[in-house]
Design a protein around this nucleic acid. Structure first.
Lengths: 221, 221
DNA sequence: GCGTGTGAAAATCTTCACAGCG
DNA sequence: CGCTGTGAAGATTTTCACACGC
């Protein structure tokens, strides 16, 4: 099965969400000069079951060798290709508050093939300020960034009240992938992929589990 | 069905993950002095289908009125209770780099019942420094925080290399809920709930969708 | 022999569609 | 009548277990 075929047939969303984890584990192994891994080892490194790992990889094709395992470099390339990481992805961060600035400084982006090509804010008072070696630019630069620099991903780090407007501006400029850190549900056209990262939600889920543990103990000790 | 019963029988994980979204939408409605909502309206505000919303709420009990809808205040209370948010949850942030500092400044925590009671770092050079109105404290304070302040949730914002050690320290001190921002898979005992937030992973998933769209167009225009 | 790749089974999650009740 | 609550159907995801091929 070629990569194009696998892509066309569709890798399940749940599997796609785990591929970055496999890629990271493989990169770490390659850094330790490990040349080959079994599904058991790689699964342990990525924190999943070996059956799930093999199933996930089977959606991409047959890149392992029976009785042996997977070639670390080869598998990393195949996963990177499936994720579309053969190219660099230009990213713009919108909203230069605390979070936006922390994200601008975050090293992990560049390491994984994402280039932060612009920091944007709609507040004129911060435009021109320098953060992480880049000047903060106005939202009106968006169209040029998409046209001239191939901007494809927007990261929204604005306060909740400004997030929908920021999203609308990104979409109007032609950005079709959005990562939203603001605590609101964004409306966007169907062909735009929006993903959300929400700290409070995560803590509330943790609270549920902490709480539930306590209740379960009280009910059935 | 009482809350205790619902909790014992178990609310599906997928439903739990959506409850914070419903709670947020309800809080917004309450702020606008809306007293009652239909599942259709609330679902739209939370970005899910009305059938899913009703199904999710049914795991908690029957808090709606047929032909009418849900009382906003009542439903918010019930969801908060199910999530265990009737109490404040003390939180400690471990790792005072860029991300840790941004998190320390983040207002959303307090708004949703999470109290950041301590900022910790293992590097002596930053201990004592003031961030967001609190002094950075050494990791050795952990036991006292758990014992005296009921610390229950740890947020790991260390570099990847220090994350497992930070997690081990938290667990040893008695923390049973961990939110991990570091790009590593953490090993922890079964009774500890670990959730992961990973910026690079989110971007890679976005890249997959952006890429896949382009490939799909090329294959079947 | 060993570990991958994969059908088939099991579990989980989502949607449907309508009975039931205010 | 209108909207909730929910069994049942459908879709998706995960696990199982073993055939297959190096």
């Amino acid at each position: 099965m070629s990569t194009a075929e696998a892509t066309r047939r569709g890798v399940p969303d749940a599997a796609v969400a785990r591929l970055p984890g496999y890629l990271r584990a493989l990169t770490a192994l390659a850094g330790d000069d490990v040349a080959s891994v079994s599904s058991e080892e790689l699964a342990a490194a990525a924190g999943v079951s070996s059956a799930m790992l093999r199933k996930d990889l089977s959606y991409l094709g047959s890149y392992g060798v029976r009785g042996v395992g997977y070639d670390v470099g080869r598998l990393a390339s195949e996963i990177a290709a499936a994720l579309g990481l053969t190219q660099d992805w230009p990213v713009a961060i919108v909203g230069m508050g605390n979070l936006g600035r922390a994200l601008a400084d975050y090293r992990g982006f560049a390491e994984r093939g994402f280039r932060v090509i612009a920091l944007l804010d709609h507040d004129e008072r911060v435009i021109g300020e320098e953060v992480a070696g880049q000047r903060i630019r106005p939202m009106t630069d968006l169209e040029a960034l998409v046209r001239d620099d191939g901007l494809a991903i927007g990261v929204i780090a604005t306060p909740p009240a400004g997030a929908q407007a920021a999203c609308d501006r990104l979409v109007a400029a032609g950005v079709r992938s959005v990562l939203n850190f603001a605590a609101v549900v964004l409306a966007a056209p169907e062909d735009v992929t929006v993903r959300k990262v929400d700290l409070s939600t995560e803590l509330q889920i943790l609270a549920f589990h902490g709480h539930r543990g306590a209740v379960a103990e009280a009910v059935a000790p």
